[in-house]
Design a protein around this nucleic acid. Structure first.
Length: 796
DNA sequence: GCCTTGAAGTTACCG
DNA sequence: ACCGGTAACTTCAAGGCG
């Protein structure tokens, strides 16, 4: 008996297949309210794109010619003349509906040859994304669909299969179903450095699940065929909703895929028993599951400088480095071949999988919220760059408005002015309050309706229309109606405000609170990135004046804010883009806040109070002591990943002594002490490593930079480069230029180290950055012993 | 030919 | 493959000097 029913489901993954006759069928993979895994099929939706006509074209003529393009097999099903908006203006376009999603790229080219056709639009939006947007479905959100149950032929790994009778509709609900998460990590035999899947077996696959399962699949010495099969069976048996790995999109999955191909094994881990495949934004897609690479998340953790799994796990409080085994990647083969050492290797491999699951448990909530706001499935949202995330978010708003998305075009990069930065008043200041505008750029875009579809170029200015006119640059924006950016941002900021309000009544330990907190953070990320998107030449909705006007208003606002403070007799010590640092004066503070808020209609908040704060003569570099005793360090070497740890540590300690004890003398003594310790080689070797990102291919560099030389040596001897493109090197004796004195850190010993370099180019500059303001110079920081020896050296 | 100087290349930070 | 503003270091080549 076939009966119609309503199914509520939470959307995890989406895909499509072509069934008979090139008809596409959407596959929505989800979880229903009872926790059943479900697949919903929808055969009703057809791909389409738009045709934009030239000014003088007759829609009917084009319409007829278009119909003639239709090819057998993958025909054009329908052409409609419809009204849409393009950059805020009404236009008439043709909507071309096809049968096969894959024929869209072909038809869009054919269409260009017709007279009267100016361009195609929205012809590069993937079919499944089109479906989500048009029906307002959100990944990681709940929906309801009227459907009939279909028989599961057994080759699909779900509890129920349904066929949709009508498109699903979104349902408001914030809860997250219980998801099965599997973390995995592979180790490969690598006797020659980088392993090669055509030769080198996978020796260990470690798996940890959020249901408490922990196991390892091991090769039989160098034969991995059986263990790979066992792993595949295990995945199907455990049947995870989410698979997480670390660097798995670029290493584990591609290696497994290649390896299985070599061995003639089908890596059928999908819910339809398909194999993983490379998909958009370089992620690996596993049908019916969300495969997430946690390294993509780690890339955005700027506090973690070297993004190894161990470092990220430690930073997130998942696993301390001191409490786990760490072995050198290059020695994996040795550990494997040695019966005793193999135990250690297994422990190491398991620690990796355990940390991977731990990281996932910390961040998945955020990933799911980001996914639902942006509208990209959870397996894509992290691998998509910030620009694309913002763009997908805007696409949803545009669709609701009938606004067509412009094509992606190549443009020349033309720079424009950004935020205003004040020169700081050098030295120590007491009781400094930092005010900043919350969400300055988003609010500017809202208040002045700054948007691609409200921008009016000078030649299009009309009498009687009302405009906001940007200071300095003079760009105009229509006051009405609200533009795309304004609508999108307003919704984000209002939602965030409401969420933060709701959070106040919840227990911070509760799951509800954590979900809401992730959501408000995800909203903040997208709102803050929208200005950056507006100034990105690669953006669909790029219009330079939009970005340029936003920063111009920003500069004007901050300038006038400074003036208000000064007029009230407040001392302004520093400011950067949306902040002002003011010498505290509680009598005038309230008046200041009132005046600013009244004048601009923006919130200005006292964000921080520094008991003591130190500024160098340079912008964007300072350190301040907060009331609770913590020290904020901004921009200085302490927070830079490309200085040795010893230099950073010395500077941090110097700042602490200066800010807490107010004693430059003691700080200088401390510096001399560290220098003499280093001369006695009492500083751990690890603290001498300097890490730098390898930003491009080795042969693209125009100068022989130190880390490039180190990278070349690394490549020659080991055959691979470290995770995240970071090269760790030390400076050794011999040679004139720095580039002649570098060695990958694991290819040198303490005896090779050029102590002098670390004293003069690392420790002293870092310390002097602070101590110079107190009258110290290079000589006064060196140990007595060194001054003499250096003097004698000069005499020779 | 040697030394000084400044431009260019490079990275990583701030908001 | 989000923006501009900024600091700081190293390399490299031009320019000055003799």
């Amino acid at each position: 008996m076939i009966s119609e029913m309503k199914v509520r489901f939470w959307l995890l993954d989406i895909g499509y297949t072509l069934i008979s006759n090139n008809v596409p069928r959407l596959e929505l993979w989800g979880i229903d309210e009872s926790g059943r895994r479900v697949l919903i099929l929808d055969e009703m939706f057809r791909p389409y794109f738009y045709v934009k006509l030239s000014e003088d074209a007759n829609p009917e003529d084009v319409f007829l010619k278009l119909k003639n393009l239709s090819k057998l097999g993958s025909p054009i099903l329908k052409v409609d003349v419809v009204k849409r908006k393009y950059f805020g203006r009404e236009i008439t376009v043709l909507r071309v509906v096809c049968r096969n999603p894959r024929s869209v790229p072909e038809y869009r080219e054919d269409v260009l040859k017709i007279a009267g056709v100016e361009d195609f639009l929205e012809a590069d939006i993937r079919y499944s994304m089109r479906y989500l947007i048009d029906h307002q479905l959100t990944p990681c959100g709940w929906h309801e669909v009227e459907a009939i149950e279909r028989e599961n032929s057994g080759n699909i790994k779900v509890d129920k299969v349904y066929e949709a009778l009508r498109p699903p509709k979104p349902v408001e609900d914030t809860k997250i179903p219980d998801l099965k998460v599997m973390a995995f990590d592979i180790e490969c035999y690598n006797p020659r450095g980088a392993p090669n899947p055509e030769k080198d077996p996978v020796i260990i696959i470690s798996v940890v699940t959020n249901t408490g399962d922990k196991r390892q699949f091991l090769a039989d010495d160098h034969n991995d065929k059986d263990m790979l099969k066992e792993f595949i069976s295990y995945v199907q048996e455990f049947d995870p909703d989410i698979i997480v790995g670390y660097n798995s999109n670029r290493f584990d999955w591609p290696y497994l895929m290649e390896r299985c191909k070599t061995l003639g094994i089908k890596l059928s881990v999908g819910r339809n028993f398909s194999e993983p495949h490379t998909s958009t934004y370089g992620h690996i897609s596993v049908t019916g599951r969300a495969n997430i690479d946690l390294l993509d998340y780690a890339e955005e953790l700027y506090e973690v400088k070297v993004k190894t799994l161990e470092n990220v796990a430690e930073y997130l409080g998942v696993m301390k480095k001191s409490e786990r085994v760490i072995i050198n990647k290059l020695e994996i083969s040795k550990y494997w071949d040695d019966r005793e050492k193999r135990k250690t290797l297994l422990e190491y491999a398991m620690a990796d999988a355990v940390s991977t699951l731990g990281i996932a448990e910390e961040i998945l909530s955020f990933v799911m919220q980001l996914s639902s706001i942006v509208g990209l499935p959870p397996d894509q949202v992290l691998s998509a760059s910030v620009g694309f995330r913002v763009e997908w978010h805007l696409m949803r708003h545009a669709y609701l408005d009938g606004e067509l998305a412009p094509n992606r075009v190549e443009r020349k990069h033309v720079p424009y002015k950004g935020g205003l930065v004040l020169k700081p008043k050098m030295g120590i200041h007491e009781n400094v309050i930092v005010y900043d505008f919350s969400a300055l750029y988003p609010n500017i875009m809202i208040n002045y309706n700054v948007s691609p579809d409200t921008y009016v170029p000078p030649e299009e200015v009309k009498e009687g229309e009302e405009y906001f006119v940007a200071p300095e640059v003079g760009h105009r924006f229509r006051k009405h109606p609200p533009g795309l950016y304004k609508k999108a941002l307003k919704k984000l900021l209002e939602a965030r405000k409401a969420i933060r309000e709701e959070m106040k009544s919840l227990d911070p330990e509760s799951p509800e609170y954590r979900i809401l907190n992730s959501r408000q953070l995800a909203i903040k990320v997208i709102a803050n990135a929208t200005y950056g998107y507006a100034g990105w030449v690669g953006a669909r909705w790029y219009i330079k004046p939009v970005a340029e006007a936003t920063t111009a208003w920003g500069r004007e606002i901050i300038r006038r804010t400074i003036k208000i403070a000064k007029d009230l007799g407040l001392e302004v010590i520093y400011g950067d883009t949306d902040s002002v640092f003011i010498k505290m004066d509680s009598k005038k503070a309230e008046l200041f806040e009132q005046k600013v808020e009244q004048l601009f209609g923006l919130d200005i908040k006292p964000e921080k109070l520094y008991k003591r704060i130190f500024f160098t003569e340079a912008k964007k570099r300072y350190a301040g002591l907060l009331e609770d005793g913590r020290i904020d360090v901004v921009g200085l070497e302490v927070v830079r990943g490309d200085w040795s740890e010893i230099a950073r540590e010395v500077q941090e300690k110097v700042l602490e002594i200066i800010l807490k004890e107010n004693s430059p003398v003691r700080a200088a003594e401390y510096v001399r002490d560290v220098i003499s310790k280093l001369e006695r080689r009492e500083i751990p070797y690890e603290k001498l490593i300097i890490w730098k990102t390898l930003g491009k291919k080795l042969d693209e560099y125009k100068v022989e930079a130190a880390h490039v030389v180190a990278a070349k040596k690394l490549l020659e001897t080991t055959g691979f480069l470290e995770v995240g493109g970071k090269i760790g090197f030390v400076v050794v004796k011999g040679g004139e230029k720095l580039a002649e004195k570098v060695m990958p850190y694991n290819m040198a010993t303490y005896d090779d180290i050029d102590i002098n370099y670390y004293v003069e180019k690392q420790i002293i500059p870092a310390a002097l950055r602070i101590l110079k303001a107190f009258g110290y110079d290079e000589k006064s920081l060196k140990t007595k012993k060194r001054q003499v020896s250096l003097f004698e050296f000069m005499k020779k």
